[in-house]
Design a protein around this nucleic acid. Structure first.
Length: 667
RNA sequence: GCCGGCGUAGCUCAGCUGGUAGAGCGUCUGAUUUGUAAUCAGAGGGUCGCAGGUUCGAUUCCUGUCGCCGGCUCCA
């Protein structure tokens, strides 16, 4: 007999061989029905796995987030079983649960098609209806390896070699399916109520682009058809907020294949949003003692050799700009492209680079004057456009582009000033997020990966810089995560990360502490001892890039920007031609008051004009007919609150300009 | 860059197994003078992404290429 202790402190005596499910049934059929998995002595445990001694037990039901992961993982096994029934010989990779669903990686000669997906889904339902138990078996490692070799499952063998202990567990599903798996799983397939396969994608084995590529099938699974439907609806709704769609509908930006992939054309309306954001942050920069600078879009290759950007990141740079005649001459001498590239690397040919970062230019500005410790910190800011040759498969919308403008600045300060300066930078990011009402972000402290060689500089400096970042993040008052491998090559950083409508994460604001570049450029300032000292640099961009930030912002507001950012803040709608004269006067008054207003003087019905303005998400529609013209009034309609009734024009202007000045998030 | 899917009028999309294309909305013109989410009528608009190939004939099949979408990898 074992003693099993429940969360309420009570305990039950059970015979050897008893399972968590037995106890759940003993407590009640409703609990047994809702039960997905157990927690035994702190570990997740199959409901049907017998106790192995005196235990604590918790039954996890559909209410527990961990249970949902188990449920989805079990659905992934169901997917794999269906694939093997339909396509024998397919090799299995891995099949974990993920946010909102699961995937399974397969290796097969012929790619899966959309039609296959439907067939697989049907087969899954068929297997599910067989009510098969998820059976747990224990196998000694050597014996297991032989078995999976016999099954011709090379990836499973590789996983066993790497991960399995002396005895490992595997899970069966019916007589023909077996999978090396830590588990746990739901008791049987009949628990799976609602699932759908969503997409097929390529994925490298073990995420390594040098290894073979697998076909990944993504799916989603829920406890009920209703939840599944809601989830699918949510995905549909999210698509409508996609900044790529809204960007076109609202006329904010365009990407033109004749101009080039990933190169953003800001249309007039989008430019207003960007300009307003720049004006907004510039005011805060001024208050924080920043100076503004301008630098060119290119610089000599040598500059980037000094900084370390070239040639180490040659793959993500646009090709160097080299003198035409020099190239012609080299070509005449039979110089190959590879040799040319080599000559560039060695610095034997001079050329220019489209700048991938602004820092080298700012450094040269700093270094153009001698500095005393009394001058520091020096804070140089620039809305600097940089160019990076991102992989073509990565480009999309405004979030991943090849030319973008950072709201960049570099702070040159003493080591003692670092904590205070970093906090000042974080303050800027906080101002942005709070002004725009953005709450869904996470803070990531990117640290170096001790196993990687891509970082420059000595470890002691890294340690100090990482400590400074951790301390600053801690002072922020919001949760943050420490993430090794996420540092910049020259230093650790604090990033603000948000999600787009389809759940992809994007880094926006960033603050990076850098001990390397001042050294590489041999920057100094005169200390109190009148000897040269090395300044520390802080790179920071509170928006990150204007492109990405606006992209995220479009989705955040679903295109309905707050008044102060709206490209058109009010539209004047005369009811008929005889109100046109008054409408023009109103329009001009609005423009004079600094309100971005348009006049819709088309001979259309007011309903039609309202509909268009509404779809354009214009905050205020001012309808005017005889009554308004007589009284010097405007009938105000708000995009969200509808008809607000008539009020004197002066009053509307006063209220609206106040809302704009306050950067109110809603009208 | 890799895997898969897609590319028909400005936009959204239809077009069966090869016989050079159609709708709605937008645009333009005319009529209408309108009170809080679409007034009516007419017209214009596409070398079916681009380049080759197969074929008597290709938007439709094949190859290449460019671009877009999803995922992977990457992101100084």
């Amino acid at each position: 007999m074992f003693s099993v202790t429940l969360p309420d402190g009570s305990s039950k005596e059970v015979p050897a061989g008893a399972t968590p499910l037995d106890i759940a049934r003993g407590i009640g059929t409703r609990l047994a029905d809702a039960a997905i998995v157990a927690r035994v002595n702190g570990d997740l445990w199959d409901l049907t796995r017998p106790f192995e001694g005196d235990s604590s037990l918790e039954i996890l039901t559909t209410r527990d987030p961990e249970a949902l992961e188990v449920y989805r993982h079990s659905t992934a096994h169901l997917l794999a079983a269906a694939v093997l029934e339909l396509f024998p010989g397919t090799k299995l990779g891995i099949g974990p649960p993920i946010k909102d669903g699961f995937y399974y990686d397969f290796q097969r000669e012929t790619p899966f098609t959309a039609a296959d997906l439907a067939a697989i889904e049907a087969k899954m339902a068929e297997i599910r209806d067989r009510d098969l138990p998820y059976g747990r078996l224990l196998v000694p490692k050597e014996e297991g390896l032989k078995k999976y070799e016999a099954l011709d499952e090379p990836m499973k063998c590789e996983l066993i070699e790497e991960r399995a202990g002396e005895i490992f567990s595997e899970y069966t599903l019916g007589p023909n399916f077996i999978d090396f798996c830590r588990g746990p799983h739901i008791p049987s397939t009949k628990k799976i109520k609602a699932f759908k396969l969503l997409s097929i994608a390529g994925a490298y084995w073990k995420g390594d682009e040098n290894r073979h590529q697998l076909q990944r099938i993504y799916g989603t699974a829920w406890y009920s058809a209703k939840e599944l439907e809601e989830h699918l609806n949510k995905l549909e709704e999210a698509k409508k907020r996609d900044h790529r769609l809204l960007g076109r509908q609202l006329g904010l930006f365009a990407v033109d294949e004749k101009v080039g992939q990933g190169l953003i054309l800001w249309k007039p309306k989008g430019s207003i949003i960007r300009q307003e954001l720049q004006t907004f942050i510039s005011e805060h920069l001024r208050r924080q003692g920043y100076s503004q600078v301008f630098t060119p879009h290119i610089g000599k290759l040598d500059l980037y050799k000094t900084s370390g950007h070239f040639p180490y990141y040659a793959d993500s740079q646009f090709p160097p700009l080299v003198d035409r005649e020099q190239i012609a001459q080299l070509a005449g001498e039979g110089c190959s492209c590879a040799q040319l590239s080599n000559l560039l690397d060695k610095g034997e040919i001079e050329g220019f680079l489209l700048k991938p970062m602004n820092c080298p230019h700012h450094i040269r500005i700093f270094d153009s004057d001698p500095h005393s410790y009394r001058d520091l910190p020096v804070r140089l800011s620039e809305f600097g456009t940089v160019y990076r040759f991102e992989q073509s498969g990565e480009l999309g919308g405004l979030t991943r582009v090849r030319g973008f403008t950072q709201d960049d600045a570099h702070i040159f300060c003493t080591e003692e000033q670092v904590p205070q300066e970093v906090e000042g930078c974080l303050e800027l990011v906080k101002i942005i997020f709070s002004t725009l009402g953005m709450k869904d972000y996470r803070v990531r402290v990117g640290l170096r990966d001790p196993d990687s060689a891509k970082y420059v500089g000595d470890p002691a400096q890294w340690d100090r810089a990482e400590a400074a970042c951790k301390a600053a993040a801690a002072s922020l008052g919001v949760p943050f995560s420490l993430e090794p491998g996420e540092a910049a090559f020259y230093g650790p950083k604090i990033d603000f990360v948000v999600q787009d409508v389809i759940g992809r994460e994007w880094q926006l604001g960033t603050v990076q502490v850098d001990y390397q570049l001042p050294q590489r450029f041999d920057l100094t300032y005169a200390g109190p001892d009148n000897k040269p000292h090395r300044p520390v640099m802080i790179h920071r961009a509170p928006f990150g890039s204007m492109e990405r930030f606006v992209g995220v912002l479009i989705e955040h507001f679903a295109g309905a920007f707050p008044l102060w950012l709206s490209p058109v803040q009010a539209v004047v709608l005369p009811i008929s031609d005889r109100h046109l004269e008054y409408a023009k006067q109103v329009h001009q008054r609005l423009l004079d008051a600094g309100i971005r207003a348009e006049l819709d003087d088309r001979s259309e019905k007011v309903n039609y004009k309202i509909r268009e303005a509404q779809l354009a998400k214009i905050p205020f529609m001012l309808v005017m007919g005889d009554r308004e013209a007589e009284q010097g009034a405007v009938a105000v309609r708000n995009r969200k609150h509808g008809d607000l009734g008539a009020k004197p024009l002066d009053e509307f202007i006063a209220e609206t300009t106040a809302l704009i000045a306050a950067k109110a998030v809603s009208e």
